[in-house]
Design a protein around this nucleic acid. Sequence first.
DNA 1: GCGACAG
DNA 2: ATCTTGTCGC
Length: 231
Amino acid sequence: MKLKEKKNFQDMTNLKTFNIEKARELQRKIAKKVILYDDFLNPPQTVAGLDVSYKNKKAFAVAVILDYKNLKLLENKSISMDIKFPYIPTLLSFREVKPLSAVIEKLEIKPDVFLVDAHGIAHPYFSGCASHLGVSLDIPTIGVAKKKLVGDYNNPANKKGTWTLLKYQDQIIGAVLRTKKDCKPLFISTGHKVSLKSALKIVIETTKKYKHPEPLRLAHLLTKKVSTTKK
DNA sequence: GCGACAG
DNA sequence: ATCTTGTCGC
Ligand SMILES: [Mg+2]
C-alpha cells in the first residue's frame, strides 16, 4: 500500500536526541489534525487489524486484512526491526508508529479502515497511537485498547454490546464497550476519520466469539507467532 | 509527595 | 509488552 509521501510526521524516535517538549508539541499538532467525523468507505468492505510484539530487542509488526462481511482473512503481512524507543505511558506512538507504518506499506490491498491495538484520542494530549498513525499516513483508524490511559467512566453492564462514555476534561474521548459477557470491557476511541459512533459499530460487527474484534485477535496471534518463529 | 500509568 | 503453570468460573 502506498503511503502518503507528504512528510507531516517528524521522526522523533531517536532516543539520543529525544526532547519531551518537542514531543508534546508534535502531539498537540497531530491532535489538531485529527478528523472526528466519518471520512471512509462506510460500510467498509475490508478491515485491517494491527499489532506489535517484542522479542530480543526486536519489534514485530503484523497487519491483517479481513473481508468485512464474512471476516475471512484476505491478506497478512509482517515485518521486524530493531526497537528504537522504550515504552513510556503517553509516548507509545513513538515506539509503535514506525514498525506499523513499515508493515502497512507492504500491504497489497488498501483496507477501508484500520483497527489499532492502542488508544486514539483517549490520550492526555488527544494523540494516542491510533490517531498518530492515522494522521501521519492519512488513513482511517480506530483505537481499541484493553486498559484506560486517561478519563473517567462507569462500568458498562455485564452484557455483550453495552457501553458507556469515556470522559476527560469535560470532553467525550471514547467509549467503554463490553464485547463479551464476563470479560473486561475494551476502550474504543476515534483514531482518525472515523466517528465514535461508527467506531463502535465497526468493533461490534467485527467481534464474534471472542473478546477482541477478529482483525485484532488475528493480528495479535500472528505477531506472537512471528516473534517466536523468526526470533 | 502520592497515585495513575495504552503496549 | 514479556517471563510462565496451574487454577477458578462460566
Ligand atoms: Mg499490542
